[in-house]
């Protein structure tokens, strides 16, 4: 691994930030102070961090109902995220989006699209605009394995293929669409194989290895910028928490869970980093402490953040 020390520590910080953010949000939700519902990404942090690290500030991502990790990875702040989840007017969508629709266009993230596969044609359309205007931008479109069964996947991916659009289709394959395992809904469970049937390149990557994800996404982004897009990246990963809210995941086999938990993306990356020789455990502990402080401060602020007034109900409908 020849990557710059600050760069890899930055990746580690993002991984830990997402994990700690999600754990804190889960607590806030269960204690009853946070409204709404939540779909969390503990265990999948490396997909978001690896892909977004390969993108530039002017590149975009689209996300799903499980978008907290994508948002933090793309550069949204803890504060604007927590404020949004608490429904505050200082949130990234002024409290009108909520957990499933976090985003910030100024930071390159379309508000989460919570209809499964709904972001796929939309991302292709963004890429069409980039291509028509020759801007050199790319869009990374995150979706889960469940989205592959939707018609929107086929239609959007096919049009991206025939027009060589600069879009990286990022399938976070966590093996389950809600509670249904992929082997029940896919005859061929290798998602990346589908790219070949549309005439472009697909690749399956260890989604719990942040460097592997980063390298695959970097290559994909370069291909897109060179007019050789799209690319389908299938990132194999695992959700350590429920599909939503109080889901206890009884449908996940114990042996399967244990196998995946032993491949936790943060633990693995920490081991890699400590093996470099220029990073000590104290460095990692300091990062975790700083992240915890940032989140703690964020929660204190978010709980006091101003909420929209009733007059805001009818604003932002039309331009």
């Amino acid at each position: 691994m020849n990557l710059d020390r600050d760069f890899v520590l930055g990746l580690y910080r993002k991984l830990v930030l997402i994990r700690e953010f999600e754990e804190r949000v889960k607590f806030l939700f269960l204690e009853g102070t946070m409204p709404g519902t939540i779909h969390q990404c503990q265990g999948q942090e490396a997909t978001a961090v690896g892909v977004c690290a390969a993108l530039g500030a002017s590149d975009y991502i689209t996300s799903t109902f499980r978008g907290h990790g994508h948002a933090l990875a793309k550069g949204l702040s803890v504060q604007e995220m927590l404020d949004e989840l608490f429904g505050a007017s200082t949130g990234c969508c002024k409290g009108k989006g909520g957990s499933m629709h976090v985003g910030n266009m100024a930071k390159g993230m379309v508000p989460g699209i919570a209809i499964v596969a709904g972001g796929i044609p939309l991302a292709a359309g963004m890429a069409l605009a980039f291509k028509m205007r020759k801007t050199g931008q790319v869009v990374a479109c995150f979706f889960g394995d469940g989205a592959v069964a939707e018609g929107a996947f086929h239609e959007g991916v096919n049009m991206a293929a025939i027009w060589d659009l600069p879009v990286i289709f990022v399938c976070e394959n966590n093996l389950y669409g809600a509670s249904t395992r992929i082997d029940k809904v896919m005859k061929n469970p290798k998602v990346s194989d589908r790219a070949a049937s549309y005439g472009f390149r697909g690749e399956t990557v260890d989604g719990n290895d942040v460097i592997a994800v980063y390298e695959a996404a970097t290559k994909a982004a370069a291909e897109c910028r060179a007019g050789k897009g799209p690319v389908l990246l299938e990132l194999l990963t695992y959700r350590r928490t429920g599909h939503s809210r109080r889901d206890a995941c009884h449908y996940q086999a114990k042996t399967e869970k244990e196998a995946w938990f032993s491949r936790d993306p943060i633990d693995r990356f920490a081991t890699q980093l400590l093996g470099r020789g220029d990073i000590a455990i104290a460095d990692l502990e300091a990062i975790k402490a700083a992240v915890e402080k940032e989140i703690e401060d964020g929660v204190v602020n978010a709980k006091q953040a101003p909420h929209p007034t009733l007059a805001d109900l009818t604003t932002d409908v039309l331009a």
Binding site: V110, G118, I120, P121, L122, A123, A124, G125, M126, A127, L128, A129, F130, M132, R133, G151, A152, H154, E155, G156, N158, M159, I162
Partner: peptide, 20 residues
């Protein structure tokens, strides 16, 4: 486009969001 009303409508939405 291909015969894909859902798809090309989504493409129009995405392109419009990017200023087209």
């Amino acid at each position: 486009t291909p015969i894909a009303e859902l798809g090309f409508t989504g493409i129009a939405v995405g392109a419009a969001m990017m200023g087209m």
